[in-house]
Design a binder for these strands. Structure first.
Lengths: 349, 349
DNA sequence: CTGTTAGCGCCTTCAC
DNA sequence: GTGAAGGCGCTAACAG
């Protein structure tokens, strides 16, 4: 009863009466041996159940694994259910796949936790939406290619959009028709977790810790241009970009006395905007007549529905593609700024 | 100019004047050395920039990588944008993550292509929605744990739902109110790719190649029970579960003369049903008054909108959890059948 | 508790 | 074109 050990390259060499180097060449360097011999080796290999060189040993020997890791800001559970993150991943996957690389997913959740040991098997890292002060960042292997997305890491290539400019665009569009009571719904704006109205008791995170600050700056710029004092616009905040978390916050907002209820919602994500839209529909609030709503991201769900969401599109798939190409060295490792596009829909004509 | 080689365990051992085994123990077996020594080693390690044992070498030595691969039926690009697949993945990720494992994503697209070499680094494989006749299946490393999801592989543990039963449930619900002109929208039902009406010229795939056969069987059973001849119900088919592909097919269906237009659509996915709903809304067709629609899956997008989709929920996240637990050996490696749940919504009361 | 040693499976010079 | 040998970085026996 020999334990059914996996066949190795050496076993196969002995079996065929050739040297191990020849087998290795048959798999890795076709030009180093006769086509006939190569053919024989390959067919015998598959007949005997040898599935090719072991990835663990090969990567130890060569130093490369053909695996690229994507570190996600949140838990994998959250990220995989978020349309923006999913699109980003699909862009990454598309490029990696086309070049015979595979994708390892790492959660960025535990701020103090270190990445799992298996992480350092990757040839390179794409870090998505993690803020630079995150502990995790320090723990990633030194001296291996790293591309950051949506935020800057000193000395690292980055791909991102101009959040302030994009927010300015959408807000400018929305403000063409002057609102009575605009409101802004932020995403993770405050130091203290806050699902609801932002008050004087809250401290805002610095712009190195949240993308919302840059977006807010764009909104404020547009408000001022339209003669509205930003400080007078109520801020609301949401901690997690999911229907479940958004829903009660927006319900609270909608359930204010009618004379306080906003007639324009500038939302920092399409998810927030879509949740607002659903809740408004349920309450019989007419969109856009009684309430205008804008989003941010341009996810499919907002565009393939009626009424269509007015928003500003960022090319998440494109971001993923660019990041992957940078990691693979197909694109220069520099700052890449992707453009955004205003999508005028039905919710804020 | 010494090239800045990554520091190894051996280097660190020399640096600290202890043996390599001690360093290894400091990282892997705290009980094998004094806490003080361990503390010193760990702090010196991080000071000198040693990030812990190299995953490639470790996995070669131990034979385990703590990486689990998920093989997806479609391209990663598609799968990551599909709500059902994403939810499944998030279930898998949740469990793996909780046990210090990481997730490697493999595309199942190329039917004749082999998995990338880096695939065999995984400790186990979860194969999602790939049909058993797929070539790829043969190429996966032998003798490593494999769990299949949504289809059966001889001799492999599986997690799935009862598609026929679930379809029977939803169709029975829909048929309580007798339709004049029901229609069924399938997903990858035919041998010949078909986006449109299924005709006599088409051959249906066998039930070993598509889940649609099992679902169709459930629909037919319910139809017969309600005195409707299944053969008289028009079949339509869609090749890819995306808005872009569904949309023109449903447009064709809606644009038939009014007296031919269906008043009940039994759809094989929520994506199809939601696309139908959007298109109906755009055409001013009232749902459910003029047209009733049912889906399949129970994705969030269909439940967090108005009108709410009538559908049957399968617990995709749960599937992922169970599959991951089976791979990790926390659940017996057997056939697992998950239950489904009728979700009566507004689109087919 | 600590050190020595022998590979894990492969790739790659180098000599033939 | 082919074969022999060293070592990638680590861990698990075992010996002290």
């Amino acid at each position: 009863m020999t334990p059914p050990r996996r066949m190795t390259l050496k076993d196969l060499a002995r079996e065929l009466g050739v040297s191990t180097a020849t087998i290795s060449n048959a798999f890795n360097r076709p030009d180093q041996l006769s086509p006939t011999l190569r053919e024989r080796i390959l067919s015998e290999a598959s007949r005997l159940g040898y599935g090719g060189p072991d990835a663990k040993a090969r990567s130890l020997r060569t130093g490369r694994s053909r695996i690229v890791a994507v570190v996600l800001a949140e838990s994998l559970t959250y990220s995989l259910n978020d349309a923006v993150a999913s699109e980003f991943l699909s862009g990454v996957a598309e490029v990696l796949d086309a070049h015979g690389h595979t994708l390892l997913l790492l959660p960025g959740r535990g701020h103090d936790s270190q990445p799992p040991g298996s992480a350092n098997i990757a040839d390179g890292f794409i870090v998505y939406g993690l803020m630079p002060n995150n502990q995790l960042l320090q723990r990633l292997p030194f001296q291996r290619p790293l591309v950051s997305v949506d935020f800057d890491v000193e000395g690292c290539p980055t791909v991102h959009i101009d959040d302030t400019e994009a927010s300015y665009q959408i807000a400018s569009h929305a403000l063409k028709q002057r609102p009575e009571r605009p409101a802004i719904i932020n995403l993770r704006l405050t130091v203290e977790p806050c699902n609801g109205r932002v008050t004087a008791a809250h401290t805002m995170l610095p712009s190195t810790s949240t993308i919302s600050r840059a977006r807010l700056a764009g909104f404020y710029e547009a408000l001022e241009e339209h003669g509205i004092t930003p400080g007078a616009v109520p801020l609301w905040n949401i901690e997690e970009n999911t229907f479940e978390v958004c829903s009660p916050v927006l319900a609270e907002l909608f359930d204010q006395p009618a004379h306080l209820r906003p007639d324009l919602l500038l939302c920092m994500s399409d998810r927030i905007a879509l949740t607002a839209l659903t809740l408004a529909e349920q309450r019989g609030i007419r969109v856009p007549e009684d309430l205008r709503i804008t989003g941010f991201d341009g996810i499919a769900e907002g565009q393939y529905r009626a009424p269509r969401l007015t928003t500003v599109r960022q090319d998440s798939v494109g971001k993923g593609r660019v990041a992957a190409q940078m990691i693979l060295g197909h694109l220069p490792a520099e700052q890449q700024l992707l453009k955004t596009e205003l999508l005028p829909g039905d919710t804020c004509p």
